[in-house]
Structure formats: structure tokens, C-alpha cells
């Protein structure tokens, strides 16, 4: 019986560890666009939430540090595997999201905008 308890506690430990890098708790509303495709696995996920705060893999970050951090995460990955997921709240203004796009571009990331299919 103790084996089951140990396994259970280990599982809880790893779930909590994974949550630290997760951004599913952040509040943002996706914009709409057409011709969407399923996104690949990505090492970097950037969120600009409803409060206009910027997060990289669930951790709050300043836009000035973003390019360097994304570059570190992507390392020497070849083209095609340098995907960076971009989850920007639909009402975010250009003065906020444009520097984010620039930073990802500077880090050599391949942008995937996470959006919703266009409603008819």
C-alpha cells in the first residue's frame, strides 16, 4: 500500500513542478483568424494577458529581457523547431504587442499566433 502512496505523491510533485511553467491560469481572449492549423510542440510560449502583462512560459517578464530569454530557450534548435507560441489578448494595443513580435523575430523564433477560428 505504501508503494501506491509514494507513486501518488511523486505524481503530485511532478504535476506541481509542471504547473510552474504552465500558462493556462492566465486570463486572455484569443483574436479570430482564418486558415488555422494545429500548432506543434514549442519550448517557448508568450502570453500578453487582459491586464497587459507579459509572460514567458508562465513567468512574468519585461519586454526588454524577452529576446535574450527566448534566445536562451531556443538555443541551437534548427529551423522548423524554433516555434514560439504567441497568445495575445485580442484588445492589446500595437504599442504593447509590436515590441513582443520584434523580440521574437530578433531571437530567431518562428511565430505561431494562437487564435480562434473566425466565426461566420
Amino acid at each position: 500500500m505504501a508503494m501506491g502512496d509514494i507513486a501518488f505523491n511523486l505524481l503530485i510533485f511532478f504535476v506541481i513542478l509542471a504547473r510552474a511553467q504552465d500558462d493556462s491560469h492566465l486570463k486572455w481572449e484569443p483574436a479570430e483568424a482564418s486558415n488555422l492549423e494545429a500548432s506543434d510542440h514549442s519550448r517557448a510560449s508568450i502570453v500578453v494577458d487582459k491586464e497587459n502583462d507579459l509572460y514567458l512560459n508562465g513567468q512574468k517578464i519585461g519586454v526588454g529581457q524577452l529576446a535574450g530569454e527566448v534566445e536562451d530557450l531556443l538555443g541551437d534548435l534548427p529551423a522548423g523547431e524554433r516555434t514560439v507560441l504567441l497568445k495575445i489578448h485580442s484588445e492589446t494595443l500595437a504599442q504593447r504587442f509590436e515590441p513582443v513580435l520584434e523580440a521574437v523575430s530578433e531571437a530567431g523564433g518562428e511565430l505561431v499566433h494562437i487564435v480562434e477560428p473566425e466565426s461566420q
Binding site: 483574436a31 483568424a33 482564418s34 495575445i88 485580442s90 484588445e91 494595443l93 500595437a94 504599442q95 504587442f97
Partner: peptide, 20 residues
């Protein structure tokens, strides 16, 4: 180009329509 107050939803709509 975008004006500072242009929202992301309009930007993504415009850029996706250009690409399409």
C-alpha cells in the same frame, strides 16, 4: 505599420488576409 492604439484583433485580421 500600426497606429499605437490599433488592437491586436485588427492587426491579426489584416496580416492574415494579406497572407491569404
Amino acid at each position: 505599420t500600426s497606429q499605437k492604439d490599433a488592437p491586436y484583433k485588427q492587426w491579426i485580421l489584416v496580416t492574415s488576409q494579406i497572407e491569404d
